[in-house]
């Protein structure tokens, strides 16, 4: 990918409609590997990470052009290692950042700025039987049902092996405020789930639906079995999604990766990495 940017389109944009604004350039502090982005309406802010510079960036909601972030979490106290994804919890005022290298999830105050220590750390690793995805995988918080959902995998000899390799084939569901060596409350994984490589995750908290972009394998140009899938925050084990939209030409997607909601219009929006496209579906079932 030759040009980092955050492009911002009108909801009804389609075809080659140009973005209404674009955040880019040296001042923006952006780089590649922006594998999650969040918008927080309460503070009207955009949240994103820079993996190479080990930072979490917050922009004004209306940021445009070569605009600097209004806050940057970066420095030795942060313990940030290679942040590629993140989640915000506007109810409890926190930012969650999964760490592939350290196999943990760091939690910061939503308004943290500069070289600040995390509020708490949820630690994975072999001794705890789970790890975060490498590179950083999807993460989502449900403040209503009080759970944290992390894309990752289980460790151990008896663990089912995805034919595409174990890494981010599992949804690990924790208590929202889990910390230290806590284990998942529930795990959704297995051949019936169809999950092999989860990318962005969003939770429709009102009804407790986890929505996942499943792209099977990033290193295959057009892999089989991709889909947008929906599970319940109460699901566990080897269960298929409650609903799914498969990645195929008739549905207009091939390799869905990003997931976002427009609750007002009951729409699910996906970013498709093979089509270099943003695709919107009417999805009233989950709203």
């Amino acid at each position: 990918m030759a040009h980092p940017q955050i492009a911002i389109f009108a909801r009804l944009a389609k075809g080659g409609d140009t973005p209404q604004r674009v955040i880019y350039g040296q001042t923006s502090k952006l780089s590649r590997n922006m594998h999650a982005v969040r918008y927080g309406e309460t503070r009207d802010e955009i949240y994103i990470t820079n993996q190479f510079a080990q930072s979490v960036l917050t922009f004004r909601g209306g940021a445009d052009g070569q605009e600097a972030p209004i806050r940057t979490i970066q420095g030795p106290k942060t313990l940030l290692e290679n942040p590629g994804t993140l989640e915000i919890d506007e109810v409890n005022h926190e930012i969650f950042v999964p760490q592939p290298g350290s196999e943990n999830v760091l939690v910061f105050p939503l308004t943290a700025n500069g070289d600040v220590a995390p509020l708490r750390i949820l630690q994975g690793g072999r001794k705890n039987g789970w790890t975060t995805a490498r590179p950083a995988g999807g993460i989502a918080v449900d403040p209503v049902h009080k759970v944290l959902v992390v894309a990752g995998t289980l460790t151990g000899d008896e663990v089912w092996q995805s034919p595409y390799g174990n890494n981010r084939e599992s949804l690990l569901i924790f208590d929202r405020s889990a910390k230290g060596d806590e284990k998942p409350l529930r795990v959704i994984r297995g051949p019936n789930t169809g999950m092999h490589a989860i990318r962005q995750i969003q939770i429709q908290a009102t009804n407790g639906w986890i929505v996942v972009g499943q792209m099977t394998d990033g290193e295959i140009a057009e892999p089989e079995g991709t889909f947008i899938g929906v599970w319940s925050v109460k699901d566990k084990g080897d269960v298929p999604p409650r609903w799914k939209i498969e990645g195929k030409p008739s549905n207009g997607i091939l390799k869905p990766r990003g997931i976002a909601f427009d609750p007002k219009h009951k729409e699910v929006i996906t970013a498709d990495m093979r089509l270099n496209a943003v695709v919107t579906f009417y999805f009233p079932e989950i709203f």
Binding site: R11, E41, T85, A260
Partner: peptide
């Protein structure tokens, strides 16, 4: 738009946010 890895929705402005 190149290798879009994520997307968000700006509920205040009704806009779609897409990073590369």
């Amino acid at each position: 738009i190149a290798n879009p890895g994520a997307v968000a929705y700006d509920t205040k402005r009704d806009q779609i946010i897409v990073p590369n």
